[in-house]
């Protein structure tokens, strides 16, 4: 279930409005037995307390998933999720992935080859002073 009300607030209109972190929740899954979870277990033990304290607006859920590779799943306020498998990664590599998830918007990744990204793109394009007939002052 997504929180619709927040969505409207969080829709940044070209920098207007308060900053709300798009990442809502992070699920951290590990396995007690498997070797691929070694780094994840170390991360949860040593780095997560500090990271969670620094990001109080994100909810963290740590839970085992026996017999599976470790996964970090980011939940975003637009209703999307972003899972990253962190098997065989060291705790610091996992920290990078977790930071990536925290900073992500939750949108699908897409190529940005325009200077402005607008929710309502203009039909006429961006005004330029160097084009057209010019303006008599």
């Amino acid at each position: 279930m997504t929180v619709k009300a927040l969505r409207a607030i969080a829709d940044g209109k070209n920098g207007l409005g308060a900053f709300v972190l798009q990442c809502r929740k992070l699920d951290l899954h590990y396995c007690d037995w498997a070797g691929s979870s070694k780094g994840m277990n170390g991360f949860i033990k040593s780095l997560l307390p500090k990271f969670a304290a620094a990001n109080p607006q994100i909810e963290f859920a740590v839970s085992p998933r026996p017999g599976k590779h470790p996964v970090v799943v980011g939940h975003y306020i637009n209703g999307r999720t972003k899972p990253i498998c962190v098997r065989n990664l060291s705790p610091y590599e996992i920290l990078q992935k977790v930071e990536l998830l925290r900073d992500a918007s939750g949108e699908k990744l897409r190529r940005t080859n325009k200077a402005v990204l607008s929710t309502k793109p203009s039909v006429r394009g961006i005004w330029s002073p160097y084009h057209g007939k010019g303006m008599a002052v």
Binding site: Y30, D32, L48, F60, A61, V62, S63, P64
Partner: peptide, 25 residues
């Protein structure tokens, strides 16, 4: 188990935004 270690250490007791489960969700 990791959940038992965390409970023993009281690692997340002060943090209200962290929940530790001892079994699969």
């Amino acid at each position: 188990k990791l959940a038992q270690v965390l409970e023993k250490r009281n690692a997340f007791n002060e943090l209200t935004n962290v929940t530790v489960h001892d079994r699969k969700i």
